[in-house]
Amino acid sequence: MGKIFSFLFGLAVLAGTAALVYLVIEEPEPRLITAEAGDAERGTYLARMSGCIACHTNSQAGGALLAGGPAIETPFGTFYGPNITPHEEAGIGYWTLEDFGKAMTGGRAPEGYAYYPVFPYPHYAKLSDQDIADIWAALQTVPPVAGRAQPNRLEFPYDQRMLLVAWQTLFLDTSPFQPDPDRSATWNRGAFIVEGPGHCAACHTPRNLLGGPESDQAYAGGKTGPGGESVPPITGEALREAGWSLQDVAFALKTGVTPSGDALGGSMGEVIQGGTAWLTDEDRLAIATYLMER
């Protein structure tokens, strides 16, 4: 019963915060991007690292690149990654770089409404302005495709977008990644990838009933992954306990093969094939270093 009470309490807090935000507190400000002209090749690397393809392309059904993704089932409802090709009406062809920056760092549509955090903008906010400009340049190289993705299907009360403004006030930090000067360059590179574009915590850190991360259980895994999959813990402690070394983590991110000889499937299979398999060996080792020595 404690869970229900905390849920009710949480909802009351959220509703209260929504009211406060509306009346008094300022919402987190999306960043205004200032950058040199984007580098599409660098942006492609970052787009793969960010996992854009897995959610915005329906690969299983042979859908066009970034023209809209498969259903993502969550405890809050079912989401469909929208069409982010440069199509003028169906995609993001009418956006500016400034609009894209607001979406990536502030979770706001050009029209001003707030996005659900299933779009992992709290992580993309760790990208630098130049990173975002580069990803934007990469997206311009994608062939435009007509046709919108299906609308999201959310349960009440999660269908109330007003609540998202409160969510952003509670959980969103729009500032870019800051390295820790006491740690190695490799560790910091890993921290940037894992906490930022790689958005590992989006699935591997359990969420509270408000959909915010349970920060005291970072990377502890859980039972409510996409499509009801259970998500394994990826803390250094859990990985070591399961017999994984740094090299094992890096190798699994490259090939999908685990120390037991299994090949990862499910959502992680998509992450590997559309994302981490394309990274450099150095970046995979950085991810492993941060996860194991966090």
Binding site: G228, S230, G256, V257, L264, G265, M268, Q273
Partner: peptide, 15 residues
């Protein structure tokens, strides 16, 4: 290795 993973992603239940 990636063929194993591709097939598992599409055709194996991961719970």
């Amino acid at each position: 290795a990636q063929t194993c993973g591709t097939c598992h992603t599409s055709f194996r239940k991961d719970d």
